[in-house]
Structures are given as structure tokens and as C-alpha cells.
Nucleic acid binder design. Structure first.
Length: 158
DNA sequence: GCCAACGTTGGC
DNA sequence: GCCAACGTTGGC
């Protein structure tokens, strides 16, 4: 099993949106970055665990957990001229962009903020805390996953 | 294939 | 709203 972190802006699609979806499941569309695309297309497997991260908001951080329920398949929004994710260069017969389906599992007891994550030595290799990192999907090691999860019931660090 | 210009992400 | 970082595009 693999572990991941996926970013989304809570104003656009936050964890509450996912929770409110039918079957608490939604496709993760709109990713237009090749590195992230490759991970969704090739590496994310059903049952993989994913942290839901809120970006571009008052308190950026990890807010919950979801699970991959459908493996990579073409992102249809790339071929919809009405969509803001429309990409005229993607050929429907040879789709350029992929997505996965994720299902809401639970909301963490507290938000583990980026600010806090940055203070831990054991996470210094995680792309998330590196300056200028813009990857919206990133893999986590089991160690990193377990460590972050252990923070949930710990008191927030200043 | 280089690289400048441009666009986007996302923290602050 | 600013701007640093970085990906993408396109001229050459």
C-alpha cells in the first residue's frame, strides 16, 4: 500500500465538499502537471491512503484522510471547452491528463498545519515543507505517514 | 537544445 | 495583493 498527500483549495474543493458527495467519493480532476499526472496514472492504487491538504487558505495544512477507490483514468474535463480545466492540446483519443477517484474516510481531530509540519526534523525530506514546492500530489513514505498521523493526538506545537 | 518570457502555485 | 519558485512555451 502507498501513501500520498493531495492538495486542494478549500474554497474550490475542500474536505467538506468531498464528504458531502454521493458515496463521499469524487474524481480528482483538474491536475495539469506532468509529475502529478504520472503518479495518478501509474502509481496510485486502490486502497492507497491519502492525506487531504488545504492550500491557499488561512491555515494551510492537513485536514483529513481519504482513500483511492478508482485508479487512474482519463480526466474528461480536459476535453470540455466549458471547463476551466479545458486543454485544447489534449487529444481525446490519446488523453494527456488523468485522474483518480478518492473517497472520504475521516476528518482529523485537529488541523496539522504546514507551519507545524515544518518544525519536525523527521519531515525535512518531505517535498511539502520545502520552499517553493508546487507539487499538488506527492508520495509519502510509511514512516512519514505514521509520524504525521501520530501528531493528530499530540498537542499542537507552536 | 538553449533560454527568456510568461503563467501558475501557494505561502505570507 | 505580493512575490519567490518553478513549469511551460516558443523563438532562435
Amino acid at each position: 500500500m502507498n501513501y500520498w498527500l493531495m492538495k486542494s483549495e478549500p474554497d474550490v474543493f475542500g474536505i467538506e465538499h468531498l464528504k458531502a458527495m454521493p458515496k463521499k467519493t469524487e474524481h480528482w480532476d483538474g491536475v495539469r502537471n506532468y509529475q502529478a499526472r504520472n503518479m495518478m496514472r501509474d502509481d496510485m492504487k486502490r486502497g492507497d491512503q491519502v492525506f487531504f491538504y488545504h492550500s491557499n487558505c488561512d491555515e494551510p495544512g492537513i485536514v483529513g484522510i481519504m482513500e483511492v477507490v478508482r485508479e487512474g483514468y482519463p480526466d474528461h474535463t480536459a476535453h470540455d471547452p466549458e471547463s476551466k480545466y479545458y486543454d485544447p492540446k489534449s487529444d481525446p483519443d490519446n488523453p494527456r491528463w488523468y485522474m483518480v477517484d478518492v473517497k472520504y474516510k475521516r476528518t482529523l481531530k485537529r488541523v496539522i498545519t504546514l507551519n507545524e509540519l515544518k518544525t519536525y526534523k523527521s519531515l525535512e525530506d518531505c517535498p511539502l515543507v520545502r520552499k517553493g514546492n508546487r507539487l499538488s500530489i506527492m508520495p509519502l513514505t510509511k514512516k512519514q505517514w505514521d509520524f504525521i498521523l501520530s501528531l493528530e493526538t499530540r498537542k499542537a506545537k507552536a
